[in-house]
Amino acid sequence: MGDNILRELYNKVLSLFKQTEKEENAKDVARNRLRVVLMQDRTNLTPELLQRMRKELVELLSKYVEMDKEALELNLDQDGDQMALMLSIPVIRAKDEAEIKAELEKEDKEKEETEAEEVEEEAETEEAQESDEDASEEENETEENTEDIEEDNSDSEEEVEEAEESDSVDSEKEEVSEDKASKKETK
């Protein structure tokens, strides 16, 4: 009997402590939630878009390092007036030079193929232009867009390569600081 009462008392005291611990965090919880929500407000990046960005980043970076895809952390952070995109990737293993080369060559080949396809498509659109001008205009626009994205990709590849040169550590922290104009521009 006495043992039970003691145990109950102990649990009660313990739960009291647990509660105060939780309450102590209310400020941090508020601050962190607010940070996330403000970044979304300021950048117009919805959770879905962030998810997509994350996925694309994983695809891109996986070419160079073997990493824990689930543990990749993507956060937007405010550093004074500057907005920064914080990327934290636990690296499982650095890839061999050969592996990376093979991967890149494979990709270059694919790129060439798609480019060739694009040229074909362009030729097609030129034909289509004669018949329907409006439609072809739209297509050209989308092509331009994809080109832009490809350019962006090659830029970030260079950055990653630089980072790769430094020795592989278990967890490598990369900071991709975006020259995104300060938050207020979103309006």
């Binding site: 309450e23 102590e24 965090n25 209310a26 400020k27 941090d28 508020a30 601050r31 607010l34």
Partner: peptide, 11 residues
């Protein structure tokens, strides 16, 4: 704020 239940002015 002292008891960490509220964001501080600095926050």
């Amino acid at each position: 704020i002292k008891s960490n239940d509220m964001m501080s002015v600095d926050d």
